[in-house]
Design a protein around this nucleic acid. Structure first.
Length: 530
RNA sequence: GGACCUGUAGCUUAAUUGGAUAGAGCACCUGACUACGGAUCAGGAGGUUGGGGGUUCGAGUCCCUCCAGGUUCACCA
């Protein structure tokens, strides 16, 4: 033990061997990483493997809500974490633009819309379409109740309400290519896309490739028909097509309806195979809520049954639901935390707090807006991402999201402080040294910070291996906290001992870089001042 | 009913994957700048890790069982 010069001393407590690194070990570490501005980050693609990450996956019949925000943030963060782990990453989205849900909105618009458009209504298109979805649901409920009053059972009524039959008929006409149905469908979907675009942009997420269910279901149908020909799946008397999963301990699974139309599973079979053709991925991660665990279990089994060797490369990152204190969010009943509102509200809160602190009064209005936007979004994103993805979140809209403590703004603030130090340093002509000597060895607070910095690559790797942005978020907090503790007790620029000042300069710059990158991995921007 | 997930301080949560006295933040109380930024820092109080068994040197973590909550088992997506 004594011949290892990196070890200062050791002791044994309750069967544990404690090794304490020497101060010069940490000086060496800082010298090793000093000039590497991308310390801890791999080059995207360096690994030579491709990972496709699907997230967002909205239905086109309503605006995005808080649940989608969690999905998007996890997916986007994960894409950056995987890229920083050396993967080539393809960010992708499947738009569920087809199906009975959109037909419901279309039908309601046809019946009661009087030709209204987002322009005429002065409303975002996704909200307008969502209104008609709610309207359909309301009228449908009325019809059902009326039928029950006339003596039908609830089940019969729900199944045979004229509005539902009309919507189902519309879906059949859509799949048959009826020009009028297609026209309305295209028009209303476009309204929704335009609305989504605004939300995605506000949230700061994007995609490399977007798939549309209205395309992929055709591939899916073809796959099922081919499998039918090969005898891998079978047809029942009524003409519906099924896969038998009973030897896998599951049930039978419908793949095509009796009328030949596709179901959800059909299009996902198509989407997966199209993506494999497009990217020959080594891994494919679906960021989808845990309510679809069964779906993805079945998807993998069916693909395997159909002979696709890459079925084993599909992973489902199953995250928990976001609920309200009164229970699950329900779009149909309008009980949701709307994404646009939440984002705007966070930015507004950041503005109020910022104006009150008054630190940015010297900045132009536009610059201030930009900072408040970063802080509001930083608070929201960090709040969501610091929680283990697989846990459910209960979000109480009446309790505001914190800006102090273990929060995004705390970390942003720490970064702004660091930037401020270097701005001041430049004014005074202080430079960060190329190399440190070990004439000055780090004190306790400095050592605590540096050893945290040394853990960054490992934390980043763990986050990639376990698909967990939360690890990065909590790590960033620890670093920021350790820095603030050090910063409170010691001077950097004002330190008179040049050796000590140099070590602090190197360490502080590295802290700034690590915080910046860690937050980058979460998709959170860092302001130069706040 | 079957399958899967979750349960840690009033609230939000962490725990190096089986390791040391379960660690933070919010809220509550008490303190700290003529300093490079107080959205900060220091301290106090707050825990039978849902209950009970078991596995072993050692369990918040693994196994069994019960309790509570959630999801799913659709010719919805």
């Amino acid at each position: 033990m004594s011949h290892l010069q990196e070890i200062d001393w050791y002791n044994v407590v309750k069967g544990f061997l404690n090794l304490v690194f020497t101060g010069s070990y940490w000086v060496d570490f800082l010298n090793r990483v000093n000039r590497d501005a991308d310390y801890g980050m791999e080059k995207p693609g360096a690994k030579g493997e491709t990972v496709v990450i699907e997230y967002s996956s909205p239905n086109t019949n309503k605006p995005l809500h808080l649940g989608h925000i969690r999905n998007n943030l996890i997916g986007y963060s994960l894409s950056r974490i995987m890229a920083a782990d050396g993967y080539k990453v393809i960010k992708t989205n499947i738009v569920n633009d087809r199906g009975i849900h959109i037909c419901k909105s279309m039908l309601a618009w046809q019946k009661w819309g009087k030709g209204i458009t987002p322009e005429k209504a002065g409303k975002k298109g996704d909200f307008l379409v969502g209104d008609f979805y709610v309207r359909f649901e309301k009228e449908y409920r009325l019809q059902v109740q009326e039928m029950i009053n006339r003596g039908l059972s609830r089940e019969e009524a729900e199944k045979n309400a004229p509005l539902l039959l009309e919507a189902q008929d519309m879906l059949r006409r859509w799949e048959a290519g009826d020009p009028e149905v297609i026209r309305i469908w295209k028009m209303m979907n476009q309204w929704v896309y335009d609305g989504f675009e605004v939300t995605y942009k506000a949230l700061g997420v994007d995609f490399d490739k977007i798939y549309y269910e209205s395309d992929t279901y055709k591939t899916g149908k073809q796959i099922v028909l081919d499998a039918l020909e090969k005898g891998l799946v079978y047809k029942k008397e009524d003409g519906s097509v099924w896969a038998d999963l009973r030897e896998d301990g599951l049930d039978e699974k419908l793949l095509l309806r009796a009328d030949g139309t596709a179901v959800y599973m059909t299009q996902d079979l198509g989407t997966a195979t199209l993506r494999y053709q497009d990217y020959h991925f080594d891994r494919h991660i679906y960021v989808v809520g845990n309510e679809q665990n069964y779906h993805f279990q079945v998807l993998k089994i069916i693909l395997k049954k159909l002979g696709y060797a890459w079925a084993g490369r599909l992973m489902h990152l199953s995250y928990g639901m976001v609920e309200l204190p009164e229970g699950k969010m329900k779009s149909r009943e309008g009980k949701v935390v709307d994404a646009d509102d939440l984002i705007a509200g966070m930015i507004e809160t950041a503005r109020e707090m910022g104006e009150e602190l008054g630190k940015l009064d010297a900045l132009a209005a536009q610059e201030k807006d930009e900072v408040f936007r970063m802080i509001g979004l930083g608070a929201l994103k960090y709040f969501i991402l610091k929680i283990d993805p697989k846990k459910n979140i209960v979000f109480n809209p009446r309790e505001s999201i914190d800006f102090n403590g273990n929060t995004g703004p705390f970390i942003q603030y720490t970064y702004a402080r660091i930037r401020s130090v270097f701005r001041k340093g430049e004014e005074r002509g202080v430079n960060v040294p190329e190399k440190l000597t070990d004439n000055y060895l780090p004190n306790d607070k400095e050592t605590a910070l540096v050893r945290l910095l040394a853990r960054f690559p490992e934390v980043r790797k763990d986050a990639a291996a376990s698909y967990s942005p939360a690890l990065v978020a909590n790590y960033a907090y620890e670093v920021a906290k350790a820095f603030n503790q050090f910063y409170h007790d010691y001077s950097i620029l004002n330190e008179e001992n040049a050796e000590a000042r140099n070590l602090r300069l190197v360490m502080t710059r590295k802290t700034g870089e690590v915080l910046y990158h860690a937050m980058y991995l979460l998709g959170i921007e860092m302001p130069e001042r706040m």
